[in-house]
Design a protein around this nucleic acid. Structure first.
Lengths: 158, 158
DNA sequence: GTCGGTGCAAATGCTTTGCATTGAT
DNA sequence: ATCAATGCAAAGCATTTGCACCGAC
């Protein structure tokens, strides 16, 4: 039912069209340009494949030898949201967390209250429930965010 | 199944013990004091009964003729979170939203993508699903946050 | 060659904190 | 009387923005 997803031992299901093309097409449709900096930001996001925050992304960019300013990184994050490639995933109010969603199944999160461990999972049942709730109330579902706060098996042993 | 909740036309199910006592007891257990300001903040939160943000709470306090500083309001919000009386409900990364939870059933949220309309609802099925997902993965559920992004019936007509 | 893009540093806006004063127990 | 709480204003931090220069189309 709920499928846990390791962020490390499996490749994400990529859509046929590479992400950079999707982004480039989006930019062109808005009369915007596909620059090296924007490509570098997207590359680093793909490299992290999962949940990330702005500061981490900056570090990843530096690690890969890319010299993109903080301002441009934030500006690109915003564009990628508009393009529907990433979305915000809020865990706390301190800072925004984002996740790559284009060409992926919706992923929900389970956070350990003791260790902070984060596990992503998918649940088709949840999506069905969401759609049912919307229909009952006359709304049209667009998306959702589901976060479970729990104690992980490892933390229980501590 | 999913029960929509109007925030206006019904009293919240209050627990037997008044909230102020719960708070006072919490403070005492921590060697902290129950001050007029803290009581005023809690009163205003109860008056709003639902989701609120810090700035709104300040306004509610002023409306009721209470003179509580911004600093104290934020400090009290933090204490109320520690006491398990309110929790954060994140809708966007701009600012924190909080909701009163003590003595209430867990409430989830449906936000209209077009009008920003917010509806709270309860779904026992969701909680059951949450528990099932946790059990399957060996975790112990503590709480959850579920937000549906959708288009409301009124917005569809626009 | 033209706009839009970039980096920098300054500005924002929510939230937190240091400090002198006030007040609950 | 004591020790924490308050209010104010200043500080923090993530994020945004103004502006002069740069570069993709």
């Amino acid at each position: 039912m709920a499928q846990p997803i390791s962020t490390h031992d499996q490749k994400p299901p990529q859509s046929m069209v590479p992400l950079c093309s999707v982004f480039r097409r989006f930019l062109k449709s808005k009369g915007l340009k596909y620059t090296i900096e924007r490509a570098d930001v997207l590359d680093s996001i793909i490299a992290r494949d999962g949940v990330f925050e702005a500061e981490e992304l900056l570090l990843e960019l530096r690690r890969r030898g890319h010299r993109v300013s903080k301002a441009t990184t934030y500006r690109t994050i915003k564009l990628l949201q508009d393009a529907g490639i990433i979305v915000q995933a809020l865990f706390d109010s301190k800072q925004a967390h984002y996740q790559l969603i284009y060409g992926k199944e919706p992923r929900d999160h389970m956070v350990c209250m003791k260790t902070g461990k984060l596990v992503e999972f998918q649940s088709a049942e949840l999506t069905k429930l969401r759609n049912r709730i919307c229909t009952e109330l006359g709304w049209s579902p667009v998306g959702h965010r589901f976060q479970i706060y729990a104690v992980s098996p490892e933390a229980k042993k501590l």
